[in-house]
Nucleic acid binder design. Structure first.
Length: 359
DNA sequence: AACACGGGGTC
DNA sequence: GACCCAGTGTT
């Protein structure tokens, strides 16, 4: 028992050491690796959740330029934060980030918290981000478990249970935690994620030149291409949105902000009728809450399409000319053509607006 | 434990 | 079309 434990320890030490050495040679030069300031690191971690480095990098720079400090973010309007997030997806990240900034001002006197428990207490920060920020900024010895780590560990230890099951994730977290180099948690966490991103990739991993090859169970069993295993089958629903582009004589439009638990919460849209019925010619009064307005249809768009993780969305835009100036009523606002660019819109609406040169 | 939440990229 | 990406919050 004692001997076995010692052997495992030695192997884990070697694996950790290999990862660190590999990282020192192969690390990408990424902007958030040049600082120990918790604020930009926090921003980078939230932006990068379920987002590729390639896509997130530009958002990172724009975000910090607009909100250079935690205090600046906390005092911003939520709509301004969402506008900066436009096109990035998973908008709850932006809303939670904003709320968390205000929370830090209130609960922690504007100082980003320095313990794992306090960091993870912030909205939008879960086990991954708390371990990442905690280790990078404060040297807290908690291992990060992201998609890269799930893949690396599941292959290294030949874990054939679905990694998206909580029990498996817990097991992987424990295994990864034993690997973590407590001398430098920050560097180890960067190393294992970078290794997954560059060497132990989902498709076509570089096993031939892999420095962990001799330790890798999946390689020995020739099942690298079968791991990690996932159980979840996502089923998609189809939804059809009919948007009313109601334009008055002053080139103003009726818009409203999405609320509730649906997609795109907090983003803006045009008066919406959701109906999966096709080809029924819509009149102005088929749209919700616009009763007194008079106008006539001057154009119907082609069908716009967008695929989300759980939905196929189709959108059709009905352009009506209103006879009189629009007034705000119910939840609707009236905005001018030149103000369209100031609001955050779902991608499918951005596509329409760009096609019509309204954005 | 299962599910929803976006958009871009790859094969 | 299926799957992945520096995951988290809700039910």
């Amino acid at each position: 028992m004692q001997k076995k434990h010692k052997n495992i320890s030695k192997a884990t030490e070697q694996v950790s050491s290999v990862l660190i050495q590999w990282y020192r040679k192969n690390a990408r030069d990424l902007p958030w690796r040049h600082t120990r300031d918790p604020y930009p690191i926090w921003i980078s971690e939230v932006i990068l959740q379920q987002t590729t480095v390639a896509q997130g990098e530009a958002y990172y720079h724009r975000f910090l330029k607009k909100f250079p400090t935690l205090a600046a973010l906390a005092s911003a309007e939520q709509d301004a934060v969402l506008k900066l997030w436009e096109g990035l997806g998973y908008y709850s990240r932006a809303r939670n980030l904003h709320a968390a900034a205000q929370d830090v001002m209130n609960r922690f006197d504007g100082q980003f918290p320095d313990t794992y428990e306090n960091i993870i207490s912030l909205k939008g920060i879960g086990p991954y981000a708390a371990a990442a920020i905690g280790s990078f900024v404060y040297g807290i010895p908690r291992v990060v478990v992201d998609g890269n780590v799930l893949r690396v560990i599941s292959r290294l230890y030949g874990i054939e249970e679905a990694v998206d099951l909580p029990a498996t994730k817990k097991q992987i977290t424990l295994l990864a935690q034993t690997l973590l180099d407590t001398q430098d948690p920050a560097e180890f966490n960067q190393a294992i994620m970078e290794f997954g991103a560059i060497n132990c990739t989902y498709k076509k991993p570089s096993c031939a030149t892999c420095p962990l090859r001799q330790f890798c169970t999946a390689h020995a069993k020739k099942i690298v291409d079968q791991l990690p295993l996932k159980s979840k089958k996502i089923k998609k629903t189809t939804r059809r949105f009919h948007f009313l582009i109601l334009e008055d004589p002053n080139n103003c439009f009726l818009v409203d902000q999405r609320t509730g638990k649906d997609v795109w919460q907090g983003l803006f849209q045009f008066p919406l009728l959701e109906s999966n019925k096709l080809d029924h010619e819509l009149s102005l009064h088929d749209f919700p809450h616009i009763e007194p307005i008079k106008g006539k249809l001057v154009g119907v768009s082609e069908l716009y399409k967008q695929t989300l993780t759980h939905q196929y969305i189709q959108a059709c835009f009905y352009h009506f000319r209103a006879e009189a100036s629009l007034k705000r009523h119910n939840s609707y606002k009236v905005i001018s053509k030149s103000e369209i660019k100031d609001y955050a819109w779902p991608k499918i609406i951005v596509n329409y607006l760009k096609d019509r040169e309204l954005l």
